[in-house]
Deep mutational scan, measured.
Amino acid sequence: SSCPGKSSWPHLVGVGGSVAKAIIERQNPNVKAVILEEGTPVTKDFRCNRVRIWVNKRGLVVSPPRIG
Rank of each mutant, 00 (worst) to 15 (best):
S1D: 12
S1Y: 10
S1T: 14
S2I: 15
S2M: 09
S2H: 15
S2Q: 13
S2A: 10
C3L: 15
C3T: 15
P4A: 14
P4S: 13
P4N: 11
P4Q: 12
P4H: 08
P4G: 13
G5Y: 09
G5K: 14
G5M: 15
G5N: 15
G5P: 15
K6H: 15
K6D: 14
K6A: 15
K6E: 14
K6R: 15
K6C: 15
S7W: 12
S7D: 14
S7L: 12
S8L: 12
S8C: 15
S8V: 15
S8K: 14
S8M: 14
S8G: 08
W9C: 02
W9L: 06
W9V: 03
W9F: 08
P10F: 05
P10L: 03
P10R: 05
H11P: 05
H11D: 14
H11M: 09
L12P: 02
L12E: 04
L12M: 08
L12T: 04
L12G: 01
V13A: 02
V13K: 03
V13P: 01
V13M: 05
V13Q: 01
G14C: 03
G14V: 00
G14S: 01
G14K: 02
G14W: 03
G14P: 01
V15T: 09
V15K: 11
V15P: 01
V15G: 03
V15N: 04
V15D: 04
V15Q: 14
G16S: 13
G16C: 15
G16H: 13
G16N: 10
G17K: 02
G17W: 08
G17T: 01
G17C: 04
G17E: 00
G17M: 01
S18M: 11
S18K: 08
V19H: 07
A20M: 04
A20F: 01
A20N: 00
A20Y: 02
A20Q: 04
K21G: 03
K21Q: 09
K21C: 04
K21F: 02
K21E: 00
K21A: 10
K21S: 04
K21R: 06
A22V: 13
A22G: 11
A22Y: 08
A22L: 12
I23W: 08
I23M: 10
I23N: 05
I23Q: 04
I23S: 04
I23D: 02
I23A: 06
I24D: 02
I24V: 07
I24C: 03
E25A: 02
E25W: 01
E25S: 03
R26V: 07
R26D: 07
R26A: 11
Q27R: 05
Q27V: 07
N28S: 07
N28P: 00
N28V: 09
N28E: 07
P29M: 05
P29A: 10
P29R: 09
N30A: 14
N30M: 14
N30L: 12
V31F: 12
V31E: 00
V31W: 06
V31M: 09
V31K: 03
K32W: 04
K32E: 12
K32L: 06
K32S: 09
A33N: 03
A33C: 15
A33K: 00
A33I: 01
A33W: 01
A33F: 01
V34F: 06
V34N: 08
V34D: 14
V34G: 01
V34H: 08
V34T: 10
V34E: 14
V34I: 14
I35V: 08
L36Y: 10
L36T: 08
L36F: 08
L36C: 11
L36G: 03
E37A: 09
E37W: 05
E37Y: 06
E37R: 11
E37K: 09
E37F: 07
E37T: 12
E37L: 12
E38F: 04
E38C: 08
E38S: 07
E38G: 03
E38R: 07
E38V: 11
G39L: 03
G39E: 03
G39W: 00
G39Q: 06
T40Y: 07
T40V: 07
T40D: 06
T40M: 07
P41N: 09
P41V: 13
P41W: 06
V42M: 07
V42R: 05
V42L: 06
V42W: 05
V42D: 10
T43I: 10
T43W: 07
T43C: 07
T43F: 06
K44Y: 08
K44A: 11
K44C: 07
K44S: 12
D45P: 05
D45S: 08
D45L: 05
D45C: 05
D45A: 06
D45H: 09
D45I: 06
F46H: 10
F46R: 08
F46V: 11
F46P: 07
R47I: 09
R47P: 14
R47W: 12
R47K: 14
R47C: 13
R47V: 11
C48N: 13
C48Y: 08
C48R: 12
C48V: 13
C48Q: 13
C48E: 14
N49A: 06
N49K: 04
N49E: 10
N49F: 02
N49V: 02
R50K: 13
R50E: 15
R50M: 14
R50D: 14
R50V: 15
R50I: 15
R50C: 15
V51K: 00
V51N: 01
V51E: 01
V51C: 07
V51A: 06
V51D: 04
V51L: 03
V51T: 03
R52I: 15
R52L: 13
R52C: 12
R52D: 08
R52A: 13
I53T: 02
I53F: 03
I53C: 03
I53D: 05
W54R: 04
W54N: 04
W54H: 07
W54T: 05
V55G: 01
V55L: 03
V55Q: 01
V55M: 01
V55N: 03
V55C: 07
V55S: 02
N56S: 07
N56I: 00
N56G: 03
N56C: 03
N56F: 00
K57N: 11
K57S: 14
K57L: 05
R58K: 10
R58W: 10
R58T: 11
R58F: 14
G59H: 06
G59R: 05
G59I: 02
G59T: 00
G59F: 01
L60F: 11
L60A: 07
L60C: 08
L60V: 12
L60T: 10
L60Y: 11
L60I: 13
V61Q: 03
V61N: 00
V61R: 00
V61C: 09
V61P: 02
V61H: 01
V61E: 00
V62H: 03
V62I: 10
V62P: 00
V62F: 01
S63K: 13
S63C: 13
S63T: 12
S63W: 07
S63M: 08
P64G: 04
P64K: 05
P64F: 02
P64Q: 05
P65N: 00
P65M: 05
P65L: 03
P65Y: 00
R66Q: 11
R66L: 11
R66Y: 11
R66G: 07
I67S: 08
I67C: 15
I67H: 03
I67R: 13
I67Y: 07
I67T: 12
G68E: 10
G68R: 04
G68Y: 06
G68S: 08
G68I: 06
G68P: 07
